[in-house]
Design a protein around this nucleic acid. Structure first.
Length: 889
RNA sequence: GGGCGUUUGGCGCAGCGGGAGCGCAACUGCCUUACAAGCAGUAGGUCGUAGGUUCAAAUCCUACAACGCCCACCA
């Protein structure tokens, strides 16, 4: 296809496939060597499913940033990978197997892991294809996975080093246990949900009456846990109960004798002021139990079913047990009363089951030594958050950080590399497997648990770059430049990467953390599968093209923390997205501007751009400023501003005016035509380069047709228009001069529209302007005549106003359109009077301001000067309108 | 309970101390050979409420309201 043959509409599906193949075949996605480094790691998507709008936004931002830096010649590489997402994937695979009538427990660990790998390959492949279709220039030839052998070695080394350095320890703790997934999950993975519940007031008899009291009353939301009570606590600041401290309670049902003691955890004002203490089933009670040496009685098994030894209650689930216990108390007359009580309950973020605080043996990372350095690098701005406010989120989390439970009772994940000898009690963390005990020779047993997914993904910036075996590979490419991610994993992931990277590489993992807004549905609710209101990025690409989706997404990148995505969805099907459609309109606009240039290239010879007309000087000046704004904007991650700047320039300046202005020159002499061609090609070429990071496909498709691309491999590898190379084009006078042209043409067009005069009707126009302005305008008299369809254009300081004319006052000029015999002047009079009233209002306002002594005394001189000039200008305009009104009969 | 964000024309959003903007939608007129997914023009807002600071407030401060998010706690 040549530029002359470009079809009217850009076929995104056709071009995207072709261009993508060209980029991939060209090997352009591999590392680009150069001075300065811009290595970026993709936040690895979970292999659990398809990409959603969050990924689309995330990846668009990164790709725009990467393409920009690649064009600037930096050493760029965008590292691709996916995350095994332990619990999430295991849940999905479990479900899939269950639907086939297969149970995980039946087939065993090895076969189950094979099923997980199959799943990973299938969905990992889909995700990679989707990333490709978005135009993301990641290094597809070197895809990482958090369970790759190399990666696994890195994970294992980290575990062993921390184990031997004393940062990893094992302990019996209360953890958030999911009885359905039968695993511990971290605090960060637990979700609180408010639920309506009850407070049951239970009577616990005292062994010996105290001051005549035979029983005390405790209030609880979880009566079933009373089977595990080993104490009753009161507040130390509760004088009424002081006498009871030290007394003994006989726990109903189990007849256990338990003490009453005082502890600061207790709030005397809540319930009865007596708290039943169940150290094995509540984090606070655990702490109290530890402080007061209470036994820990575990009443639940891993499925939250009551264990043996509790008579009729054994074998009951939590809920059954609750009912039975309450019934028992009621029957025995020990149920004092019941109140409604709303409270929040922890749920598993995966299966949504109610979590059970459960005492079990788990592995932990001690964070004391890690949090200090990780706090410092953010406080001293080595790591910078964009927008800046997320710094606080990070620091607050870091400050309140508790030891991290890293073991999970799952199969899919990195198995904990701790080996035990049951014969002699030997135990160690090993980087290589060992079969027999080095001490006694007995067979060894490896820990059954796997590591939390975040334990492996915390190494993402360096374990994807050769660490620890090939430190050469990382050299110069770590720290990475930017991490672009969602705010909900600042704590889970970002913070942990900082901690581990500082510990193992002595470097921060990245310099900038870019937090993008959460994309919400049109009505402000979260997009979710269950609601069926989620937008599939692939649907958007199919409907509007990847460039349109990307551009639309970039316009959404502002300081906001949420954005509503304006898409209509019905039953999970995308009906349309007005803003993406508008973005596609922009793509089409770019395509057609290029098509115009292509249609006018006959006789073109390569050559430098040159200023022939004020319009040339003006567009070059605008282009130079655009380059500066776009460059700075991308450097500062202000993608919304960048998108708006590009749109404004290309559409409102280049297309609406420069192309229109160039039409006359294209019809001029051979020299004028050639100069115009060269200038059009030049501006289009630079504009395409500036647009390319945001809209890679359409710009590449056009650019390869441009004469300036001859002999060059691809726009994505072409040089970035550096602001300093264009700065000499900046020309304020030219911008002013085109301002006059625009004002004149607009004035005539407005007059036409106002009086319903056809664009085909020629109008005689006269402009009264200063000598300098008149000269500037006259230099483009032909253009103005053309654009406004004028029969005559008269310009000068002494031009006379035709008797029956419409007058526009703008830019210090008076623009007269001779309308003799064409219109009703009563309307013109009314319009002028309306203008006059508005002017008068502005003048009064300004006059008031300028007569305010406070303003004159305190305002900056330049503001005063500006307002004074403005006031004079408005008064001048008013005088002109008055004069015109006087002349209108 | 602590923190954060948002509130600007019908819709989606910029602006964040000196005369209220953009895109879409609306209305009017144009099929002007790059583009009707276009062009030209018009209309529409006392910038959530109430105070305060300032010569000057959409913009800064305080309180309040609505909506949303995060963290903590809830025997």
């Amino acid at each position: 296809m040549s530029m002359v043959e470009m079809p009217k509409n850009y076929d995104s599906a056709l071009e995207e496939e072709r261009i993508l193949a060209k980029w991939l075949d060209g090997g352009f996605y591999a590392r680009n060597e150069g001075p300065g480094d811009c290595t970026v790691v993709i936040p690895p998507p979970n292999v659990t499913g398809m990409l959603h709008m969050g990924h689309a936004l995330d990846d668009t931002i990164q790709d725009t940033f990467i393409r920009f830096n690649r064009m600037r010649g930096l050493s760029t590489r965008w590292i691709l990978g996916t995350d095994h997402a332990g619990i999430a994937t295991q849940t999905k695979v479990d479900k899939k197997l269950k639907s086939e009538g297969i149970s995980r427990l039946e087939i065993g660990r090895e076969k189950f892991l094979n099923a997980c790998w199959d799943w990973t390959h299938e969905y990992g492949g889909i995700i990679v294809e989707q990333i490709k279709r978005m135009g993301c220039s990641v290094d597809f030839d070197d895809e990482k996975f958090t369970m790759d052998p190399d990666y696994a070695r890195a994970v294992r080394k980290v575990f062993c080093d921390w184990y031997h350095d004393g940062l990893i320890y094992r302990g019996k703790r209360i953890v958030n246990w999911c009885p359905s997934c039968t695993t511990a999950i971290s605090d960060d993975e637990a979700e609180y949900q408010d639920e309506g519940g009850h407070l049951w007031y239970l009577r616990y008899p005292l062994k010996e009456p105290v001051d005549g009291r035979e029983y005390i009353v405790v209030a609880t939301t979880r009566p079933e846990t009373m089977l595990g009570d080993t104490g009753v606590a009161v507040s130390p600041e509760d004088p009424e109960k002081a006498a009871l401290v030290g007394a003994t309670v006989v726990l109903p049902i189990v007849n256990r004798e338990i003490p009453i003691f005082s502890d600061w955890h207790v709030d005397a004002g809540f319930g009865t002021g007596f708290v039943k203490v169940t150290p094995a089933h509540d984090p606070n009670d655990y702490a109290m139990g530890a402080a007061h040496d209470l036994p820990q009685v575990n009443i639940f098994d891993e499925h939250a079913v009551v264990v043996e030894g509790y008579g009729e209650f054994s074998g009951m689930t939590r809920d059954e047990c609750r009912e039975a216990v309450v019934a028992w108390f009621e029957r025995e007359g020990l149920l004092d009363h019941v109140e409604d009580h709303d409270h929040s309950v922890m749920h598993c973020y995966r299966c949504d089951n109610t979590l059970e605080p459960w005492l079990s043996e788990q592995w932990f990372v001690a964070v004391d030594k890690l949090k200090g350095p990780a706090t410092d690098v953010v406080k001293n701005s080595q790591v910078t958050f964009h927008p800046e406010r997320w710094t606080q989120t990070y620091l607050t989390w870091m400050e309140n950080l508790k030891d991290w439970c890293i073991s999970r009772q799952l199969w899919w994940g990195h198995r904990i590399p701790v080996f035990y000898c049951d014969a002699c009690g030997w135990e160690d963390a090993l980087e290589e497997d060992l079969d027999v005990c080095p001490k006694c020779g007995a067979p060894l047993r490896q820990d059954e648990d796997v590591l939390d997914t975040w334990f492996s993904s915390q190494l993402w910036t360096f374990a994807t770059q050769g660490w620890p075996n090939n430190l050469q590979e990382m050299e110069g490419h770590h720290p990475t430049k930017a991490l672009v991610t969602a705010r909900d994993i600042i704590a889970l992931w970002v913070a942990r990467m900082v901690m581990s990277s500082l510990y193992f590489t002595d470097q921060i993992p990245f310099e900038d953390v870019v937090i993008y807004a959460t994309i919400l549905a049109k009505d402000g609710s979260r997009m979710s599968k269950s609601k069926g209101n989620g937008v599939d990025p692939m649907d958007l690409i199919n409907m509007y093209g990847a460039d349109a989706m990307r551009f639309n997404l970039l316009t959404l990148v502002t300081n906001n923390q949420d954005v509503r995505f304006d898409a209509d969805i019905k039953d999970g099907k995308l009906l349309g997205s007005p803003r993406t459609e508008a973005a596609r309109g922009f793509v089409t606009k770019i395509w057609n501007a290029a098509r115009f240039v292509g249609m006018n290239l006959e006789g073109y010879e390569p050559g430098e751009p040159s200023v022939q007309t004020p319009a040339d000087a003006w567009i070059f000046s605008r282009l130079a400023k655009l380059s500066a704004n776009v460059t700075k904007g991308i450097e500062e991650y202000r993608f919304g501003d960048v998108a708006r700047d590009l749109h404004q320039f290309f559409w409102s300046e280049f297309c609406d005016w420069y192309i229109e202005l160039s039409k006359a020159a294209l019809k001029g002499s051979a020299e004028e035509r050639l100069a115009a061609q060269r200038n059009l090609v030049f501006v289009l070429d630079v504009a395409l380069r500036l647009l390319h990071p945001a809209m890679p496909f359409v710009t590449e498709a056009i650019w390869e047709q441009l004469p300036t691309s001859a002999g060059q491999p691809a726009l994505m590898m072409a040089a970035w228009p550096e602001p300093e190379n264009l700065a000499s084009w900046i020309n304020e006078e030219a911008e002013k001069s085109i301002g006059l042209t625009v004002a004149t043409v607009s004035a005539v067009r407005a007059v036409r529209a106002r009086y319903g005069l056809s664009p085909k009707t020629e109008i005689a126009c006269a402009v009264k302007a200063s000598q300098a302005d008149a000269e500037a305008l006259l230099s483009q008299a032909d253009l103005v005549r053309n654009l406004a369809n004028l029969s005559v254009l008269e310009v000068g300081p002494e031009v006379a106003r035709p008797a029956e004319s419409a007058v526009t006052v703008e830019e210090g000029c008076e623009i007269y359109c001779d309308l003799a015999g064409m219109v009703d002047f009563a309307a013109e009079r009314a319009r002028l009077e309306k203008d006059r009233a508005e002017l008068q209002k502005d003048i009064d306002k300004l006059a008031k301001k300028l007569s305010n002594p406070g303003f004159l005394a305190k305002a900056a001189q330049e503001i005063i000067d500006k307002d004074t000039a403005k006031h004079a200008d408005l008064c001048d305009q008013l005088a002109r309108i008055d004069a015109q009104l006087a002349e209108l009969v």
